[in-house]
Amino acid sequence: MSDLLLREDQAGVAYITLNAPRSLNALSDAMLAALKAMLTDLSHDDEVKVVVLRGAGKAFCAGHDLKEMQAGRAAADNGRAYFADLFTRCAAVMQMISVLPQPVIAEVHGIATAAGCQLVASCDLAVAAEGTRFGVNGVNIGLFCSTPMVALTRNVPRKVAFEMLTTGEFITADRAHQVGLVNRVVAPEALADETSRLAATLAGKLGSVVKIGKQAFYQQADMSLADAYEHTAAVMVDNMLFRDTNEGISAFIEKRKPDWA
């Protein structure tokens, strides 16, 4: 695995660190490839119950590597094929997060801009340090953040997203919490501990249930109301037939700890 990503596993939680601090953990071609490989590995790792994604150095992630993108213009087609491939690869990595069996928590500090903000929005949960700034600020350099917009508009109200996209202005961690981009905001010195506490809470749940619950969560979100109820009812039927669900309900009724396999 590339040293662009560092992995540390603790008590069922995989801590994945974007490790390119000199570029503010930009999503270079190499970083995207490393993330794809890491997420693929995690999707098959039954020992991991929760994933935490964080950044080394001063920032979480500053988005795409603009120098690398400009270099792509040297091709005969002025970079069209490279840009198309880049944004397709990035979108694929973002979508891998939502279909990963484990919940993914973004631990955010410094800045999360453009595709870096997209990365936060693509995670299932996010904890931010006070002072963190979030932006989809490509418009400031003549590039509308169209692909980051997809994840952003699925997290925050449309008018908030449109304002961020068209003004290029940053929002604070408190504002990000207010509009639903992040779940919790804590003092910088408490960021790692708060994220770990949240991860430990999730890791302590029945993994098979969290897995089907996450899958159903994203599936029903794109359905009509009637279809969503039909689908989730079927999911609950399957869930009720789990051996460990039977044991969990029995243990609750009998006022004892469940004996989960």
Rank of each mutant, 00 (worst) to 15 (best):
Asp3Met: 08
Leu5Cys: 05
Arg7Trp: 03
Glu8Gln: 14
Glu8Trp: 05
Gln10Ser: 13
Tyr15Ala: 05
Tyr15Trp: 15
Pro21His: 11
Ser23Glu: 15
Asn25Pro: 02
Ser28Val: 12
Asp29Ala: 07
Asp29Cys: 06
Ala30Gln: 11
Met31His: 02
Met31Gln: 07
Ala34Met: 00
Ala34Ile: 07
Lys36Asp: 10
Ala37Ile: 04
Met38Pro: 00
Leu42Cys: 09
Asp45Gln: 07
Glu47Lys: 14
Val48Tyr: 00
Val48Gln: 02
Lys49Ala: 14
Val50Trp: 00
Val51Leu: 07
Val52Cys: 08
Lys58Val: 10
Arg73Ser: 12
Ala75Arg: 13
Ala75Gly: 05
Ala75His: 09
Asp77Tyr: 05
Asn78Gly: 11
Asn78Lys: 13
Arg80Pro: 00
Leu86His: 01
Phe87His: 07
Phe87Lys: 03
Thr88Ile: 06
Cys90Pro: 00
Ala92Asp: 13
Ala92His: 08
Ala92Arg: 10
Met94Ala: 07
Met96Asp: 10
Met96Cys: 06
Met96Gln: 14
Gln102Gly: 07
Ile105Gly: 02
Glu107Ser: 15
Glu107Lys: 05
Ile111Thr: 13
Ile111Trp: 01
Gly116Leu: 05
Cys117Leu: 13
Gln118Tyr: 02
Ala121Asp: 02
Cys123Ser: 10
Asp124Gln: 08
Asp124Ala: 09
Leu125Met: 15
Val127Thr: 05
Val127Leu: 04
Ala128Gly: 06
Ala129Gly: 06
Ala129Asn: 00
Arg133His: 12
Gly135Thr: 04
Asn137Val: 09
Gly138Ile: 06
Val139Pro: 00
Leu143Tyr: 11
Phe144His: 09
Cys145His: 08
Cys145Gln: 04
Thr147Ile: 12
Met149Asn: 06
Val150Lys: 10
Val150Asp: 04
Leu152Asp: 01
Thr153Asn: 14
Arg154Trp: 03
Asn155Leu: 09
Val156Ala: 04
Val156Asn: 01
Val160Ala: 10
Leu165Cys: 05
Leu165Asp: 02
Thr166Gly: 05
Ile171Trp: 00
Ile171Gly: 01
Thr172Phe: 03
Thr172Arg: 04
Asp174Trp: 05
Arg175Asn: 07
Ala176Ile: 02
His177Pro: 01
His177Gln: 15
Gln178Met: 09
Val179Arg: 02
Gly180Asp: 08
Val182Cys: 12
Val186Ala: 03
Ala187Glu: 15
Pro188Glu: 06
Ala192Tyr: 06
Asp193Thr: 15
Asp193Tyr: 04
Arg197Ile: 13
Arg197Ala: 14
Ala200Gly: 11
Ala200Asp: 09
Ala200Leu: 10
Leu202Lys: 06
Leu202Asp: 07
Ala203Met: 11
Gly204Val: 07
Leu206Arg: 13
Gly207Cys: 07
Gly207Glu: 06
Ser208His: 11
Val209Ser: 05
Lys211Trp: 14
Gly213Arg: 05
Gln215Asp: 13
Phe217Val: 10
Phe217Ile: 03
Gln219Gly: 02
Gln220Val: 14
Gln220Pro: 02
Tyr229Asp: 12
Ala233Lys: 07
Ala233His: 14
Met236Ile: 09
Met236Val: 12
Val237His: 11
Asn239Pro: 00
Asn239Lys: 11
Met240Glu: 14
Leu241Ser: 14
Phe242Glu: 11
Arg243Met: 04
Asp244Asn: 15
Glu247Trp: 01
Glu247Asp: 13
Ile249Met: 13
Ser250Trp: 13
Ser250Phe: 08
Ala251Trp: 02
Glu254Asn: 15
Lys255Trp: 10
Lys255Ser: 12
Arg256Tyr: 10
Lys257Arg: 14
Lys257Val: 13
